[in-house]
């Protein structure tokens, strides 16, 4: 057992015997070039894991591999289904995988336009996942949508507006509501604050932190911004050139970075 894994032992696992997601020896090659290589980690219920690194470090490749959007060249990714069974994600049928993606999982894109339907109303954006799993009561769908818009601080009077009419921050909050409405257990986030102003970023991070705590979500978030990782995550993976160079609890890693690259990264941030 390595040091990082030992630290995981200290986390409160709320009596869960198995991790939610288990990544083993995952590698992705693009021809001769390495996307990411030999990545191993587990994530537990309620835990927020940040994958940090500069652009080109392989963090987005890794995120796409574990969210079944990009098949890895080798390695396995197992997920604990709602019935408690660990299943290899790439052994699932496409129907099962798609069902997982729209119910038990969420995916928050950096650009909200990639995750929203820009030409249908905010209400329908939030309601779509529910309709996909069989909700057929317009009034209840609307009430749920109104409730979720409120939770992400969007006024109920905007429910029939299309996201095209929303600011960047509002769009991102709408995308989050659209993902969380089916009470997913695991949410992937790809630079969710990427395109936003600093003040808008702070508000969004605050909101995400509140929702994660309230709902007990597990989150895997990709970011190049150590401040985002510090604010949201329990644990961090630091990547460089497709490899994990350091892995550990966020507080420990930021206070006492071990790998030279992490030291460089942390010092460059903390001086600002």
């Amino acid at each position: 057992m390595n040091a990082a894994a030992a630290q995981i032992e200290n986390l409160d696992r709320s009596s869960e015997a198995l991790p939610l997601l288990s990544v083993r020896s995952v590698s992705k090659a693009y021809g001769a070039r390495i996307g990411c290589t030999e990545v191993n980690f587990d994530i537990w219920p309620g835990e927020v894991l940040a994958i940090v690194g500069e652009s080109g470090s392989g963090k987005t490749t890794l995120l796409n591999c574990i969210s079944t959007r990009l098949e890895p060249t080798s390695g396995t990714i197992a997920y604990r289904m709602r019935d408690g069974e660990m299943r290899d994600l790439y052994q699932l049928g496409e129907a099962e995988r798609r069902f997982l993606l729209r119910t038990d999982w969420g995916f928050v894109h950096q650009n909200p336009a990639d995750g929203l339907r820009m030409t249908v109303s905010a209400g329908a954006n939030v309601g779509e996942r529910l309709m996909a799993v069989g909700h057929r009561h317009y009034g209840e769908l609307r009430a749920t949508a109104t409730d979720w818009l409120g939770r992400v601080e969007i006024g109920a009077d905007r429910i029939d507006d299309q996201p095209r009419a929303f600011s960047g921050g509002m769009r991102q909050r709408l995308q989050i509501a659209r993902n969380l409405v089916t009470a997913p257990r695991l949410v992937f986030m790809d630079e969710p604050t990427g395109g936003l102003d600093v003040s808008v970023q702070a508000r969004l991070l605050d909101l995400v932190r509140g929702l994660v705590n309230e709902l007990g979500l597990s989150v895997i978030i990709v970011t190049h911004d150590l401040a985002v990782a510090r604010l949201l995550s329990h644990r961090m993976l630091v990547m460089k050139d497709g490899r994990v160079v350091e892995h550990g609890l966020t507080d420990r890693l930021l206070d006492d970075p071990q790998a030279p690259y992490t030291q460089l990264l942390v010092s460059s941030i903390l001086q600002v």
Binding site: R98, R117, V120, A124, M131, V133, Y138
Partner: peptide, 14 residues
């Protein structure tokens, strides 16, 4: 995957 079909009907009603 027919959720989209109801999205259209939802939009009509909205």
């Amino acid at each position: 995957e027919y959720g989209l079909m109801h999205v259209k009907l939802y939009e009509d009603i909205a």
